[in-house]
Design a protein around this nucleic acid. Sequence first.
DNA 1: TCTGATGATACCTGTCAGGTATCAATCCAT
DNA 2: ATGGATTGATACCTGACAGGTATCATCAGA
Lengths: 295, 295
Amino acid sequence: MELRHLRYFVALAEELNFGRAAARLHISQPPLTRQIQQLEEIIGARLFLRSTRGVELTTAGKTLLAEAQRILGMVKVAEERTGKAARGQIGRLDVGIFGSAILNHIPRLLLEFRNQYPEVEIALYPMTKAEQTEALRAHQITVGFNRHVPTEPDIVVETVHFEPLVIALNRKHPLARQKSIRITEIVDEPLILYPRNTRVSFAHDVLNLIRSAGGVPNVVQEVTDVVTAIALVASGFGICVTPQAASSLKLPGVIYRQIKADPPPGIELACLYRRNDESPILGAFLDIMRRLPPA
Amino acid sequence: MELRHLRYFVALAEELNFGRAAARLHISQPPLTRQIQQLEEIIGARLFLRSTRGVELTTAGKTLLAEAQRILGMVKVAEERTGKAARGQIGRLDVGIFGSAILNHIPRLLLEFRNQYPEVEIALYPMTKAEQTEALRAHQITVGFNRHVPTEPDIVVETVHFEPLVIALNRKHPLARQKSIRITEIVDEPLILYPRNTRVSFAHDVLNLIRSAGGVPNVVQEVTDVVTAIALVASGFGICVTPQAASSLKLPGVIYRQIKADPPPGIELACLYRRNDESPILGAFLDIMRRLPPA
DNA sequence: TCTGATGATACCTGTCAGGTATCAATCCAT
DNA sequence: ATGGATTGATACCTGACAGGTATCATCAGA
């Protein structure tokens, strides 16, 4: 049996007249007669009762009509869905995220993707950087987000977003009068380090920055969250280096200053995916990611 | 798109190798290559990633695979179901029944039909004889059962079952010594008539029998149910003419005797259906009905 | 009885599915 | 490196068959 048989059958079942059905199918009447006869032979049952003033469905014909309409509908849906899948408009995007990475750029990105591809399901999996690489290789996730930038041959690492670091300091601090501050100017300053006890974070970058400027980090306090860190700055405990996003946290007595350096120190949010991944959903996602304007 | 495309696609998606898939389909490899290319053109999307050591499904291909398998499954089911419908193995049989008619032959018949055609749903509608004819014409029922035998040009009436009438009488009655009794012998006997107040019943037949034998019915009591009638016979009120089925009701002092006549008087259970009804379910039902041995 | 509508049949033709032969690309064993 | 084996793609031919035209048989209705 071929879909042609079903298409012809449905047309005839709806018109109940060979001539009209044939016209609707843009063929002549004899081929339609033959195809219907053939279908009846394939099924092994008479589907129509013919008379000189039209045709009528048999019980078997009525049964097949319902089935045929469902099948033809499914074929249409299958064509559309397959096309959509090819264009990345349906399916699922599995995203590996690394804890705090979700706080900055990513929500906007996912929101934009969801708006443009509403039929793509987005699944988020919190996992470490090592787990992300592994999960990518095992096809458990399609993209991973991470701050770190490792280099693996089969995994592409693409920078999504660069967020400069800023220095938070008390308004009474002498350096507060400057628009921007050099790292060398703060090497001896009492430092509030955040976050603490986290395996990989920009805290390491901050310490390295100071060391490479020839200083010895003078950590007076380690805290787990950025709010506490800034509160300590407000109280005059010391200064704190944070991502720029934290500067939206306005506490009395705290001001934020850019770091004067070339290139400016900052943290990079990177996106990881398989080098040979041809998935149209990934393509669509990367496309949006690359086009998304910075906040 | 044709089912051929889907069949070939599924074979290739499962084998992931043109040569093997072609062998499975009993065709050679080049036509398969061409049909798959054609399908990709119809869908407007690449379905396979080819390499020199086999093929791999794309995202679109994976989507289509699921759809195609469902569609091909449905086609198979549609063929089977249509064939079954043609053979009367699925569908519904709507039966009109007339009150007490259900008590005798019909349960056995319906049970036998259900055993042979378990996938046919049986619906019973109690209705009068007039309603049955009407319901048949309106295609609300497929068969009706009735005691009466009207003659309508478009409705076929077929006798299902003939049940002889028997005479119930007290063991002390003089006629009780005979094996069988003539109608002429009971024309003057006190008669217990049952059922009463029923529009169409064998009670009329009983009265007509007596009248045509030259008697005047001597009705001493009318009762609504057969148990009361037989109880009155046991008490010696009179005799009663009942369908043979009632003789299973054994009360002390009551004996049943056949009626000697040619043809023997009795009641006919008839089956009604539309003369032009070609429904295979009806055909199957009538077939079973005609073959069913008497109780 | 004639007419117009219906579906079926006979026969022709062009398309296309499927065949064979062969190629190009890649991998693997030597 | 290199030849053989394996993969999918291409070129070209052929036969089956879908679809065309012409026509028939049947039957309802005027």
